[in-house]
Simulated scan of single mutants.
Amino acid sequence: MEDTSTRSEPESPPEASAESTADGPTSEPDDETDIEALRERVESEYDFDDFGPSDMAQMSADEWDAAFDPDTWITGDRLLDRVDAELKSRIATRDVFGVLERVREDGEERILVYSDEGYAIISPTGEVRGEGTVLRDIEPIVALAAMDSYEVPEPPENWSLPHPDSVPEGSGEFGNLVVQAVAAAQVLAGAALLVASAVADLGTIVAPAMGIVFLLVGVFLFAMVANARLSDRFRSEEYRNRLRALREAKERPEFVPVEDGVVTERGAAASDSDRDE
């Protein structure tokens, strides 16, 4: 009988060891591929030319890291200039409601945006702190301005908030007139069909039925135009009231931590608490 006690165990084939050593190096390319795939999906899913707070809230942490590469972010005075131009453009188009100022903190320049519903302070590092709806609106704007691939539009000369008396009653009057014309045509057609059915014995119910349908459509369109005009007037009046409140206030709102163009200790304390969180 053959003695097998001294026989060594068979060695693993070299192919297996080669595969095991190859697993490590291939993991990094796989990770890079996953990041690229995630970045492509984010770019196709989100419109960064119209990136807003709702989009920012929907993005996960992985999507945020894939879309915004921290190594390519713009900081310093260049970031403040880009944010300044972007905010002026958005204030001019009413995408942002607020007063824009340059303030200082610890000897460095900051951008302050405030309204009757909150404020935001932007630092050269891209940090944004504040409260209210202004903070919610400003955060995605700063993120966009920090991207080198994003082209900041040139703000118009008269970018500041308008005078309350210069705000029109509503917008889209041409569209309302077009809808009114269509509604009038529907009413006239319906009335004509009903009159024709009453005067001449057409011997069918199709004409009066269509006349009633045309009348109902016309009335509905007139009601829709009236509702749109009332909504425009309400929004315009609300906008004018907010403008008057800012103009009549001789000083910044009490919740804005800025005095004499300098961020106070209250604002600095809020920044420290944000970092701790």
Rank of each mutant, 00 (worst) to 15 (best):
T75H: 04
G267V: 00
Y150H: 06
R7T: 15
A181G: 08
R229Y: 04
R39G: 06
V219N: 05
G211D: 03
A223F: 06
A207E: 12
E2R: 12
P208T: 04
I138T: 08
I91G: 04
V199C: 05
L194G: 10
D69I: 08
S27A: 11
T204N: 12
S44A: 14
V178I: 03
P13Y: 09
D65M: 06
T133S: 11
I121N: 01
E28A: 13
E169F: 11
A209Y: 13
T72F: 07
A143F: 00
E173A: 07
D260P: 14
T93W: 03
A245N: 07
L221D: 10
E139H: 10
R235S: 13
R240G: 14
R104E: 15
A92E: 00
A268V: 09
V113G: 09
E127Y: 06
E36C: 06
V99H: 06
A191K: 10
S27V: 13
R82D: 12
D232T: 12
R275Q: 10
G98D: 01
P155M: 01
A191I: 15
L100I: 07
R7G: 11
Q186M: 11
E11P: 13
L243G: 05
N158E: 05
V195H: 07
R242A: 03
E254L: 04
P164V: 03
P156H: 00
S89Q: 09
D30F: 10
S231G: 12
T75L: 03
V179I: 04
T125L: 07
E157P: 13
F222I: 07
T21C: 10
G218Q: 01
V96H: 02
S12W: 13
I122K: 01
E173T: 14
S17T: 15
S160W: 13
H163Q: 10
A61H: 01
A269G: 07
R104G: 11
A92S: 06
A61S: 06
L216P: 12
A200S: 10
E157F: 08
